[in-house]
Amino acid sequence: MSARDDILTRIRGALKDSPEAPEIPREYRSASQLDGDALIELLVDRLVDYKAQVAVVAEAEVPARIASLLEGARTYVVPAGLDDGWLAGLDGGGDGGAPGSRRDSRRRLDSPAQPLTVAELDGVDAVVTSSAVAVAETGTILLDGSPNQGRRAISLVPDHHICVVRAADIAGILPEALRRIDGTRPITMISGPSATSDIELERVEGVHGPRRLDVIIAR
């Protein structure tokens, strides 16, 4: 008998008393009462608690905010599907020239079709991505690999992650957020910069993942 059949036979044998599969009591909260500014306020509070840096800005100010956060970066990577407008503050002059006409020379584009190598990513200082949905109560941002968020590797290897969250994408609690995404995409849930509590259970921020997480909440 194959291992598969053997194991399934064993399990069926173990259940010969036919235990009941109970109804699942789902009396926990499935949605929160919060909306608008209260959601933003809670998300900011939780992100700050994780030692992420947060800015809440008007949608129109996102490009300037990104540009200022990238001031010290020698190079940065963006997913090919990122909103071009967000990078406008980085392209030459701000004289209304065609997008990409004087593209910032520090920028690297990444896409599944034309991926940077791991070594190239390791040489990049920062990454800018969008996000799929966020959870205010837990300070969690979900990336789902959509074109404006890119491959998982780009938000992992560079040491500084700048992540834009649209106010409309903030959910109150986890069940609301999970209902908004497709679970079969490659998903990364991010709650603050990488951290460890492995030494005397004292939390230390910054281990293997990005040590600096900047969240821009656009409303």
């Binding site: 599944p112 300070g139 998982r152 995409r185 490659p186 998903i187 849930m189 709650s191 910069p193 993942g209």
Partner: peptide, 20 residues
């Protein structure tokens, strides 16, 4: 860990072309 959420959770479903 006594945290509201752990820093990272990864979910994958089989193979995703071009990612991972």
């Amino acid at each position: 860990t006594g945290e509201r959420m752990n820093p990272y959770t990864s979910l994958w479903t089989g193979v995703t072309e071009g990612d991972g």
